[in-house]
């Protein structure tokens, strides 16, 4: 079995071993969304107008729930040290790890958002645009939150710091996604903005793993 294959199998086993971590973000998302009508108003027209933005923010927060855990367990039990001895570059292992995280934790969360959309009576075409923006934007968001997690590995369990440090950098992604949603709701062309969003995600997914690798190496104690 190749390193990549074993890596993916191990990540899958870890997910299966901790089903709580798998379901908690979805649970959080639905819970937050059910609070929105209580806090705002049960009026479905009003909810439909702001629903997509609420779902976006709630999904973002749900993503950040697990972000701090990304490397912490592997760091504590010494697996990260083993990464340095693989005959693979560190950033490639980071990419694999982030891909697994995205596939096993983020994509299931995105698949739950249509339910949240129904709860807030978001129109169908906006819901489809919402799903596409989430799929395009989450790789970038995962990479940024991974950098936050990697930078704060050396601190005692202060889970929120990585999020606080990284959240300002999410701004362009959120703006572009919100632009797509506004255009989708008034029926204009969303493809140019989707292309920009995809470009941002691709740039983040190719460049940030390098930075995450440097940050991990710092914390493992190797030379940078």
């Amino acid at each position: 079995m190749s390193v990549e294959h074993r890596f993916l199998v191990r990540e899958l086993k870890l997910v299966l071993a901790r089903p709580g971590d798998f379901f908690k973000p979805m649970w959080f998302l639905i819970l937050v969304i059910s609070m929105v009508p209580l806090a705002l108003s049960p009026d479905s027209k009003l909810l439909g107008e702001i629903g997509s933005a609420m779902i976006w923010v709630a999904t973002l927060l749900a993503l950040l729930l697990n972000a701090d855990q990304l490397f912490r367990d592997d760091f504590v039990d010494g697996v990260l040290e083993q990464w340095l001895f693989f005959n693979r570059p560190l950033f490639w292992l980071v990419i694999l790890k982030l891909f697994c995280h995205w596939l096993f934790y983020v994509v299931p969360l995105i698949l739950v958002t249509p339910l949240a959309g129904m709860m807030l009576s978001v129109p169908n075409d906006v819901m489809i645009a919402l799903l596409v923006t989430l799929l395009l934007a989450t790789p970038a968001l995962t990479c940024f939150s991974a950098l936050g997690a990697a930078l704060t590995l050396g601190t005692a369990r202060s889970g929120i710091l990585g999020v606080l440090v990284m959240l300002p950098l999410f701004a362009p992604v959120i703006i572009l996604a919100a632009g797509v949603l506004t255009r989708a709701s008034d029926g204009s062309d969303i493809l140019p903005l989707l292309a920009l969003l995809g470009a941002f995600s691709i740039a983040a997914a190719t460049l940030l793993p390098l930075a995450v690798g440097v940050a991990l190496r710092l914390n493992i104690g190797g030379s940078s």
Binding site: L147, L151, T152, G154, T155, S158, L161, L164, V165, M166, P168, A211, V214, A215, L218, N219, S224
Partner: peptide
Amino acid sequence: GLIGLRSAIKNPDLAGKACAI
């Protein structure tokens, strides 16, 4: 965020490099 990150990491060398990233 930079001020927070630096104050959270005890080891000054590590804090400096983390902030630089």
